[in-house]
Computed example of a mutant assay.
Amino acid sequence: MTATHSFSTLVPDVILDAVESTGLWSDSRIYPLNSYENRVYQIGIEDSTPVIAKFYRPERWSEAQIREEHHALLALKAKGIPVVAPLEFKGDSLLNHNGMYFCLYPRLVGQHPEADNLDQLYQLGELIGQVHQGLSETHFEERLRVSPLAQMDAAANQILTGSTLLGNAELPKALQLPEKLKPLYKKQVATLRALSEARINTYWPAQLRPIHGDSHRSNLMLHNGQFHLLDFDDCQSGIAVQDLWLHITQTENPRQQLSEIIEGYETYQAFDTRELDLIDVFKSVRVISYAAWLQSRWHDPAFVKAFGWFGSEDYWINHLNELKSCELEWGNISR
């Protein structure tokens, strides 16, 4: 039995009605964009450029949490920092149609950064430094606060117990971690957790700061010669290195990439190099959490189509190998 998914009522007529409730007049063109957590569409507008409509996944964020995201984005835009902020209608950026929160963004056309381009890494560092500086007077009260060990524990427990609830249906047994692999999984996660706890006990910043939270290259766009930061959906109270380490693609000489990123970052904001030792922690958390995220969204038809390979025994074996790689590469960056 398939559970009713969160966006089952989000059909084309509803999407267009929502957009036109703002006073814009669509030309009925709808183009779905590559987003799996929320639903994002490019909508054609009569006699004007298209807009981007983002429909928030119900029950993921509260209204107060979304409003904090928007407030941060609009404040950055007001300071001239190149981010893509939501459009406002009658003074409000967070809209509601048929009980579903949504917002509209201007369309931005450009290219994502090149993974190994050192000049671009410097520019990305500059942009993230600008964003952190621009958020320095912002205080999140509703957004999540980073807690790596708690996040690791919750994700690993979900994978081990298969306890994810998908609407009214439990996760199919075929998509759960096979019983024969659970002892190895427990051992591997325990190793990474112990290494992470030791790192955190050695250094953890006394104060968290507002950050983007998910600044991978797909959330950056080179437009008219300038990088823009997109999609603050995961903004949170965290630490600076969380917004930097995802751009490290080299495993043998990550320091060269880090040097460019940090040099650009420090054009606007001082960086505490002690945070570099926490990259291994965040990498381990991300690998474990990604598998749990896929597992928790498997009832959504968009996920089924995009991630049809998830849940096989081969997938879990590859996941275990990825966790082992995290252990074997531990310390490469800080050495």
Rank of each mutant, 00 (worst) to 15 (best):
F227K: 03
D234M: 12
G264Y: 00
Q250A: 14
Q236L: 15
P254M: 08
E266S: 09
S259I: 11
L246Q: 14
Q236G: 07
Q256W: 08
R255C: 11
W245I: 11
I262W: 00
C235W: 01
A240P: 04
I239V: 14
M221V: 09
Q236Y: 04
E260P: 06
W245S: 01
I261P: 06
E252K: 15
Q250Y: 11
A240Y: 09
F232R: 01
L230H: 01
D233R: 08
E252P: 10
D231A: 05
Q226D: 09
Q226V: 14
E266W: 02
I239T: 11
A240L: 14
N253E: 15
F232Q: 01
L258C: 12
F232E: 00
T249H: 15
D233C: 03
G264K: 00
H228E: 11
D231L: 04
Q226F: 02
L222E: 07
D243T: 12
V241T: 07
T251Q: 15
L230C: 07
E266L: 09
E263Y: 12
T251A: 14
G225W: 03
L229P: 01
H228P: 04
Q257D: 10
I248K: 02
Q257W: 03
Q250P: 09
D243R: 06
D234V: 05
M221R: 08
L229C: 12
E263W: 10
G264D: 01
F232M: 03
D234K: 11
D234Y: 13
D233S: 05
C235K: 00
E260C: 15
I248C: 12
G225C: 06
Q256I: 13
A240E: 13
